[in-house]
């Protein structure tokens, strides 16, 4: 009995270690690399030998990286705000008001998210040019919404459907308008779902590369992922891995912090829609 239990425990922890290493090692190695430079980058080491932040300084000195971060923040925050606002209002209509074609509409919204990004790229490009949003942040915000809105609407609709109908009716009897029902009754109950979808939307917008690359022209309008990809070294043949890694670490940290802050809510949100308390 006992050896078997021990074996099971060892197997379990081995699996945990493998998963953790698989998930964390790339990021750890990025941190390591970000503190090294020159040919030292090409030797494999597993432990940091000294802390050298020159790459971090270089990232900000050699290109408008602070500006790029600001752009990313503006785009991601706007995308989250607009997605959640449209998501919640759409969820009320799709989850609470019965009208003809509701199911079809919901399916269509889901279908939009099935197109690969490349497929909509050229059409989106035309659209953004026509609207005069080329090479501007509003253009990126608009483009990113196509990625975030479908799942935001879908998840929030599912969540809102689960809220008891009597709650809404009690509010109506109390004299609330639909807008007040959403704002004062539903929103406070939807925190977990809002945090989850908001965070996913933030991550999607923060990491988005293809639109950001295609719809911007100048360094000042670029977001972080594109800026990192376009970091160049002293010569054409040298990729400045140290700088790239430093930049990557800088932009990943906010995400890690956000997820850690909200992790409890996220888990609650991911399950709350499916399983009723």
């Amino acid at each position: 009995m006992n050896p078997l239990k021990l074996l099971k425990a060892i197997g379990f922890w081995l699996l945990v270690v493998v998963i953790v290493v698989y998930a964390v090692f790339p990021f750890y190695y990025a941190i390591l690399s970000s503190m090294r430079s020159g040919s030292a980058l090409f030797q494999v080491v597993l432990l940091p030998e000294h802390f050298d932040f020159s790459n971090y300084i270089a990232v900000f000195a050699e290109q408008p990286f602070a500006r790029n971060i600001l752009n990313s923040v503006i785009v991601a925050v706007s995308v989250v705000a607009v997605s959640l606002f449209l998501g919640v209002t759409a969820a009320y209509a799709l989850g609470r008001v019965s009208f003809r074609g509701r199911g079809a509409l919901l399916l269509m919204i889901l279908a939009v998210s099935m197109f690969p990004q490349v497929a909509v790229l050229s059409g989106m490009f035309e659209l953004i040019r026509r609207l005069g949003l080329y090479n501007s942040l509003p253009g990126l915000i608009l483009a990113n919404l196509i990625l975030t809105l479908p799942f935001t609407v879908w998840v929030l609709t599912t969540f809102m459907r689960e809220l008891p109908k009597e709650l809404e009716e009690a509010a109506f009897v109390d004299g609330a308008s639909p807008w007040i029902v959403v704002r004062r009754v539903f929103l406070p109950l939807m925190w977990p779902a809002l945090v989850t979808t908001g965070l996913l939307a933030f991550i999607a917008a923060w990491n988005e590369f293809l639109f950001a690359l295609t719809f911007t022209l100048s360094n000042e309008q670029r977001t972080v992922p594109v800026a990192i990809a376009l970091i160049t070294g002293a010569s054409q043949h040298e990729l400045p891995w140290g700088n790239i890694m430093a930049a990557s670490v800088i932009v990943t940290l906010p995400l890690v912090v956000l997820v850690l802050i909200f992790q409890r809510k996220i888990v609650a949100g991911l399950t709350a829609g499916a399983v009723k308390g």
Binding site: E166, A170, F172, V173, G175, P188, L189
Partner: peptide, 20 residues
């Protein structure tokens, strides 16, 4: 007319209290 304008109040089987 809306429920409010009818001057009615309703008590639901499930109570329907605002949980928050």
């Amino acid at each position: 007319k809306t429920p409010k304008d009818r001057g009615i109040a309703m008590v639901f089987q499930s109570y329907a209290l605002y949980p928050h």
